[in-house]
Design a binder for these strands. Sequence first.
DNA 1: AGATATATTCAACGTTCGTTGAACGCGCGA
DNA 2: TCGCGCGTTCAACGAACGTTGAATATATCT
Lengths: 231, 231
Amino acid sequence: MNEGAVKSAGARRPGRPRTASESDARERLLDEAERLFAEHGFYGVTVRDVTRAAGVDVALAHYHFGAKRGLFDAVFLRRAEILNADRLLALEAARADAAPDEPTVETVIQAFVGPVLARWASGDPGWKSYCALVAQVNNTPSWGGKTMTRYFDPVVQRFINALRQALPDLAEADLFWSYHFLSGALTLTLAETGRIDLLSAGVARSGDHDAVMARMPRFFAAGFHALARKD
Amino acid sequence: MNEGAVKSAGARRPGRPRTASESDARERLLDEAERLFAEHGFYGVTVRDVTRAAGVDVALAHYHFGAKRGLFDAVFLRRAEILNADRLLALEAARADAAPDEPTVETVIQAFVGPVLARWASGDPGWKSYCALVAQVNNTPSWGGKTMTRYFDPVVQRFINALRQALPDLAEADLFWSYHFLSGALTLTLAETGRIDLLSAGVARSGDHDAVMARMPRFFAAGFHALARKD
DNA sequence: AGATATATTCAACGTTCGTTGAACGCGCGA
DNA sequence: TCGCGCGTTCAACGAACGTTGAATATATCT
C-alpha cells in the first residue's frame, strides 16, 4: 500500500466520488499558498513549503500550476475577480441610492473600501491572508505596480470616474494623488502588521473592521475636498 | 596574481592609505544590499547576489555581518538613525516657528513627511532604495510591524504627542488611526511602484517629490480635522 | 470488465543556497 | 624587521531549491 503522505492535512473523504475538475488537492494548494505567500512573500516560500502544508507531493504543484509563478498568479487571481465584482456592485448600489444625483465622495469611498473590508473582517482566514498578500504586492517596487494595475485598475478606473463626477473642481493630478493616498492607507490596514497596536498600546487594534469603516470614508472624503478647495 | 573580482564595481583608489575600520568593501556591501533588498525583498536576494554586486567574495559578508539577517539589520539601521534625527530637528523647528503657540496639524505633518521626502528626492540612489525598503517592511505582516516599531516609533511617539496638542478634541483612537492612514499613504509613496503613473496615464508621476509635498500635508490635515469634528 | 483520461506520487536531475574553516596578503606597532 | 591582527579570498560542506519524466492510482466512459 501507499505509505507516503504520512501527515495528511486533508479532510479528504475517501468514499466520495468526484469529477476530475473539482480536485480538492488543487484547492488546498491554493489555500496554503495563499496563507504562506501572504505571510512570507513570494520568495520567502518554497514550492515544497506549500505542498508540504497541503499534504501532497511536490510535483503536484507543477502539474496544476506549472512554474512557481503560475501558482502565485492563480492565488492572486482567484479572489481578485470576486473583489472586483463586489466593488462594481457596491458602486452601482451607491449610484442607485443617490439617483438622480451623483453619489457623494464619501459614498464612493465607502463603496470602494467597504467590500474589501467586509471580506477582510468576515472571519474567513483565506480572505485575511489574501488581503495581506495584496498589501504586500501593492508595496513591492519591482513588479507590484504592474500586478496591481493588471488585476485591479480596470475597476479602479470606474471609481476614479465616479470621484471625478463628485468633485468637478478637483484637478486631474489631485484626483490621482488623492486616490493614491487612499490606496496606501487601505493596503496598510489590510496588511495588519500589528504596528498600530504597539504604537497605541492597545487603544487601536489592527483587525478592528468597525473602527476602520467608521473613520476611513470620512477621513479621506475630507482629504479629497481639501485639495479641491482653491485657496 | 589575483585573478578574481573580474568585474570590480568599486571606485577604489589604490594609493590611498586607510585604517582598518573604514573598509570600503564593507560600505559597498551595505550599499548593494540596500539596493537589492529594496528591489526584491529579504528572501528575494541571496548573499551571493550582494557580494557579486559588490565585487567581493561571498565569505566577506559573513565576516562583517554574521548571518544574512545581520546584513539586513545593518542596512535598515544605518539610515534610520539619520532619519530619526532629521525628523526630531524638523519637529523642534516647527515648534520654534510657532512659539509661543503650538504648531498646527499641517505643520506637524510637514515636519514628519518633509525630511524623508527630501532624502527620497535628493538624487541619492541609496536613499531611494532605503525608502522603498522601509515601505516594504511597513507592509510585511510577519515581522514588519515589530521592525518598524523598534526603529521608528520612539520618534513617532513624539509626533503623536504634537498632533495630540494640536487637536485637543480628537479622541485617542481617532488620533492613532489617523496616523496609521498617514503612514500607509507615505510608505506607498516611498515604494514608488509606478502604479500611479499607469493609472493616471502619466498625469501623476511616482517620483514627483514636489507634487507629494504640495498635497500630502493639506490632505491629511483635513482628514485629522474631519475626525475631530463631532457631528 | 477493459480502456482511457486525469490526478497524484516516486525518484531524481543539476543548481544554488547559507555558512564555515583554513589560508593568504598586508599595513602597522614593537 | 618581525610578527601580529585584520580584511579578504579560497574551497568546500550539506541542505534545500525548482523542475521534470516516468510510474502509479483513481475515476469515468464504452
